[in-house]
């Protein structure tokens, strides 16, 4: 573990006790995420990718192993506001304007009013929503709402961004556009991003590191370090390198699937 290690999980396990017996959502998951990494978690549903992300965010409590975030427990990291979390749905409050929604975590964290204004303006600019501050969520498209929710997660300047299928509900064209913007944002802000997805092209396009997971029990089957450059135009997806990585991810997914049956 180095100074640069942001997330470190060692033999992490999480078992849910249900009426039909225990469910092993995670079993012996070991992974480190370095500062500035863009890590994608990919796998079929039930593979524990979201559960793993929720463990980092202290929304689930592991039943075995250890996990640290910024060198401390997830609970301490959450309380020190170390991460911003973007959920699958934008989850904006309908009774608050876009600006008001982004301001919400800042109000909760007790930032002074002037600084709130300045931060709201800055992150709105960052996600290309300047001028929409006074609009209500229903006046925006789904893609714009999701961008607003990303702005909200960025507003308090956490170094880590945890994203749980943030673009899962959007159509292909909007998703491509947001992926491109997310990469630019990551490049500009030097944040560490953990990104859950079930789309292979999305995972390969975005990540510096791709974590392939498989279900029953939820575990990591492959970790792929991407050789792609940091600067990635959308058409990088037609290059042989890209296709090769995508192939390896697909193989990993298939392998995990077959040995589960």
């Amino acid at each position: 573990m180095t100074d640069q290690t942001v997330i470190s999980a060692k033999e992490l396990s999480l078992t849910f006790e249900t009426n039909d017996g225990p469910v092993h959502a995670l079993k012996d998951v070991t992974l480190t995420v370095e500062k500035g990494d863009f890590v994608s978690f990919i796998g079929p549903s039930g593979c524990g990718k979201t559960t793993f992300l929720r463990c980092m965010a202290d929304l689930e409590h592991p039943t075995g192993g250890t996990i640290t975030v910024n060198g401390v427990s997830p609970d301490a990291a959450r309380k020190s506001r170390a991460y911003g979390y973007v959920f699958q749905a934008a989850g904006l409050y309908p009774w608050r304007t876009i600006g008001g929604n982004i301001r919400l975590p800042l109000e909760i964290m007790g930032y002074p009013k002037a600084e709130q204004d300045q931060r709201v303006a800055r992150v709105l600019d960052l996600v290309d929503l300047a001028g929409f501050e006074k609009k209500f969520p229903w006046q925006l498209s789904g893609g714009m709402q999701q961008r607003a929710s990303i702005a909200r997660a960025l507003a308090f300047d956490a170094d880590i961004l945890l994203m749980d299928e943030p673009f899962g509900a959007l159509d292909e064209i909007v998703r491509d556009h947001l992926n491109e913007q997310l990469l630019k944002l990551w490049d500009r802000t030097d944040k560490t991003i953990c990104f859950v997805t079930h789309s292979i092209p999305e995972a390969v396009y975005l990540s510096t590191k791709i974590v392939v997971m498989s279900p029953r029990p939820g575990r990591i089957t492959d970790v792929i370090e991407s050789p792609l450059p940091r600067d990635r135009p959308l058409d990088i997806r037609d290059t042989p390198e890209f296709i090769e990585i995508a192939h390896r991810v697909r193989d990993g997914l298939r392998a995990g699937h077959s040995d589960a049956i």
Partner: peptide, 21 residues
């Protein structure tokens, strides 16, 4: 649950969750 989880990620107090959500 998502909205409540979201409040938790911001370490909101129970009073803040009540008044704001």
């Amino acid at each position: 649950p998502m909205q409540l989880d979201q409040m938790r990620t911001w370490s909101a107090t129970p009073a803040q969750t009540f008044w704001r959500l």
